[in-house]
Each structure stands twice: as structure tokens, then as C-alpha cells.
């Protein structure tokens, strides 16, 4: 089995163990639930929308592993930068 797995580069138990661990540890280390992630996402949209028009559907936000620490990486496409006077707090 091991021989064929190697030969055809199939998913081995070793690989799946490693991948499952990497995934579970990202959440263990960050201690952030998917629900909390969604709240962060909504708050981010709210804050950034004060300054620029962004594509909400285009937002990619994820936790990534960086050595022993976890990074929150967000990619937020900007459609247009708002003029200063149209900002909420300035009215």
C-alpha cells in the first residue's frame, strides 16, 4: 500500500494526519471560532466603509500559520476611495 501510495502520490495517512493537525492547530492557537471570525469580518467592513467603498463579496479573510504564531490575513478589494467630507463622523 505504502509503495503504491508513494508512486501515485496518493493521500497517505501520514499526509492526512499532518494536514488535519495543521488545520486544527490554527484554530487552537488563535482560539477564534468561525462565529467570531464572521463578527470581525462585519466590523471590518463597517470601519473600512467609512473611508472607502469596498467589494464585500470580494473579501478574503483567513487565519494563517506563521511559525508558532497565527496571522489574520485579509484581502479587501477597494472599489473607490471616499472623499473626506462624505465620511460619516465629519457630517
Amino acid at each position: 500500500m505504502g509503495f503504491l501510495d508513494r508512486f501515485f502520490r496518493r493521500e497517505t495517512p501520514r499526509k492526512s494526519a499532518k494536514e488535519r493537525l495543521q488545520l486544527v492547530l490554527i484554530h487552537d492557537r488563535a482560539d477564534i471560532s468561525p462565529g467570531t471570525m464572521e463578527l470581525i469580518r462585519k466590523d471590518l467592513i463597517k470601519v473600512i466603509s467609512n473611508y472607502m467603498i469596498i467589494s464585500e463579496e470580494g473579501i478574503e479573510m483567513d487565519l494563517e500559520r506563521d511559525g508558532r504564531s497565527v496571522a489574520l490575513v485579509a484581502s479587501i478589494p477597494v472599489l473607490e476611495v471616499k472623499r473626506k467630507r462624505s465620511r460619516e463622523g465629519d457630517k
Binding site: 500500500m1 505504502g2 501510495d5 497517505t12 495517512p13 501520514r14 494526519a17 499532518k18 493537525l21 508558532r68
Partner: peptide
């Protein structure tokens, strides 16, 4: 078991734990 892809290897554990 590590060689035959059935078990995590030392290098896997090290990469994951990073110590």
C-alpha cells in the same frame, strides 16, 4: 510506518510544533 506513509514523521512533528 513513517517510510510507508502511514505515520507522522519527526520532520512533520517539528514543522508543526516549530520548536
Amino acid at each position: 510506518m513513517v517510510r510507508s506513509g502511514k505515520m507522522l514523521g519527526v520532520s512533520d512533528v517539528m514543522e508543526i510544533l516549530a520548536i
